[in-house]
Simulated assay, not measured.
Amino acid sequence: MTAYAIFIQERSRDAAELQTYAEMLRPLLGESGGTVLAAHGPQDVLEGAAPDGVVMVSFPTMEAARAFYDSPGYQAAVKHRFLGADYRSFIIGGIK
């Protein structure tokens, strides 16, 4: 079943750290089987405060999404995301 990793950027703190994260992330996604479906695009906020940005990545399975997140390469990159902004992140299983 397809799974989606959702990253909601609540508040930015350090653009340079976020840039480092983005540069490290690109090759990792290519190796993981993940596909970016949305990344910091226009928002039509229906309820609540608008986040700074949202990224949605699809993976073939929940296990593949979690393996990507837990991988040594991503764990090295995610440190820069933590320094660059406050996020909420989760993996959700698709319907089919």
Rank of each mutant, 00 (worst) to 15 (best):
G84Y: 01
P27L: 06
D70C: 07
A5S: 15
R66H: 10
L37G: 12
G73F: 06
A65Q: 11
D14Y: 09
P27A: 05
G84S: 04
V36N: 10
G33N: 05
S32T: 02
Y74C: 08
Y69Q: 15
F82T: 11
F82A: 11
L46D: 13
L46N: 10
T2C: 09
G34S: 01
D14C: 08
P60M: 08
R11Q: 14
S71G: 05
A22S: 01
K79A: 14
R11G: 08
M62V: 11
L37M: 14
E63C: 00
T20I: 11
L25K: 01
I6Y: 09
S58W: 00
A64P: 02
K79V: 07
G41Q: 14
M24G: 09
M24R: 14
E63G: 01
A50N: 14
I92L: 11
E17M: 04
R13L: 13
V55N: 04
R11F: 06
A49D: 13
D86V: 10
A15W: 04
A65G: 10
G93T: 14
E63A: 14
S32R: 00
T35S: 13
G84I: 02
T20Q: 10
T2Y: 12
S32P: 01
L25Y: 01
E23Q: 14
D86G: 02
R81F: 01
L28I: 08
I6M: 14
S12T: 09
D70R: 15
R11W: 12
R81C: 00
V54L: 02
D86K: 02
G41R: 10
V78N: 06
A85R: 08
A3G: 12
A50H: 05
S12P: 07
L46F: 13
T20V: 13
V45M: 14
F82I: 09
Q19I: 05
P51E: 04
G84P: 04
S89V: 14
R26G: 08
R13I: 07
V78F: 03
L46G: 13
V78R: 13
Y4R: 12
Y21N: 02
D52F: 07
L29K: 01
V78L: 04
